[in-house]
Design a protein around this nucleic acid. Structure first.
Lengths: 209, 209
DNA sequence: TCCTGCGTATGACGGATGTCATGCCGCCCC
DNA sequence: GGGGCGGCATGACATCCGTCATACGCAGGA
């Protein structure tokens, strides 16, 4: 997963769990004369090590990855390699994702719907110190406000997401069953849903989970 | 979306809704000397027209697309352009998807986790008349057996998936509320779930929905 | 210091959900 | 022509879920 021949271009790392997509993006960036993809990883928890090993200037991270999300990896990078710029490229343009990405210190946020040319352009711009954010998404994130759900409410909602019954959620999180009901009731109200399933759907769509 | 300069290679169409991924895959295939990506579309319902317009030999289709799924597009192609070979390339390696893809006349079924080289290789092989299927996935599809859910059960389950309450499902499908309960009960039993949410999750994971 | 928000818990109530039995109709296959 | 299956329905029952009121401890901010 390391293709390290320095030719003088921008040193880029690609983190993306789907091999075919990752290699295709590498091929795409490789066509740009000023960019060298010097490392590729398929897991979030391999990002920091690879960045340090290959003196990466710009890390392009997917969000959904095994081991660690791209957002968590961005936060790690902020600590362990503060000079490295971070571009988040994700399938889902959820406002909550954008917010979390920015808080974790990302420099750019792209959705994969966008034309491919934007990726190379974003890499160049973050290296110049600019921030690159889809304006539509930025507006949506601002309009929506912050995630209203508390940590515990999110945990309970996540457990409910895969169809667990109250008693099981209680066991998993070491809570009483009544407390689980209370949290879910709160989450349902805050999301404006009519039941737990809808609450899960809404929270997921907004990138709160 | 049409990049039509014949250079004598295999004439390929790419259908994939995420622009960045689509163009990256095009770049990747473009690096192969014997393949020409002569058309790109971002919607399922544009596939047939583009295939006919560009004399496409191999169509590479994603499953999840707006307008029409890749599987439906494959079935359309089978009727309208029987000489065109079809490669399904999908994010989700669900056994039910493989089964449906094969029934709709696809020649190859790849998951995007696989190394990029397999895509070009699959294009060449289907053109020679071979079928290309991930053996692990094929085994899983056979082991699992066919979708046990009836049409109506699937419709009710799909309506329940986005958090609709029984009364609303009944209204949407013109059923009585009791009937909705019966269908959901059936679906819960057949999937081995404990409630509707888990039934939805299981059915989705197996590609039944 | 007091107030607020979060985490946790209990109890009670009404409505939603899941199960089961039973029935009817239409279709297809033997 | 009879049997089986899918689609549709009703009624009854037990449980689960969602809501609300109330309570306590702990932290952090005014």
């Amino acid at each position: 997963m390391t293709d390290d021949q320095s030719a003088g271009g921008i040193r880029v790392l690609l983190a993306e769990d789907q091999g075919m997509v990752r290699e295709a993006l590498a091929a795409l960036l490789g066509l740009e004369g000023d960019i060298d993809v010097v490392a590729q990883v398929g897991r979030g928890d391999e990002v920091v090590e690879a960045v340090l090993a290959h003196r990466v200037q710009v890390a392009v991270l997917d969000i959904e990855m095994p081991g660690m999300t791209g957002i968590e990896a961005a936060a790690e990078l902020r600590r362990r390699s503060p000079g490295t710029r971070v571009v988040i490229a994700t399938t889902f343009g959820r406002p909550g994702y954008l917010r979390k990405a920015m808080e974790s210190g990302a420099d750019a946020f792209l959705v994969k719907d966008a034309p491919a040319a934007e990726l190379a352009e974003a890499v160049r711009r973050v290296l110049r110190g600019e921030r690159v954010i889809d304006p539509t998404l930025a507006a949506a994130a601002l309009a929506e406000g912050a995630n209203p759900l508390t940590g515990r409410e999110l945990e309970v909602l996540a457990a409910a997401a895969d169809g667990a019954v109250n008693a099981e959620i209680a066991r998993r999180l070491h809570l009483s069953e009544g407390t689980v009901r209370n949290y879910l009731s709160m989450a349902i109200q805050k999301t404006g849903a009519r039941n737990r399933a809808e609450a899960v759907r809404i929270a997921a769509a907004k990138g709160w989970m």
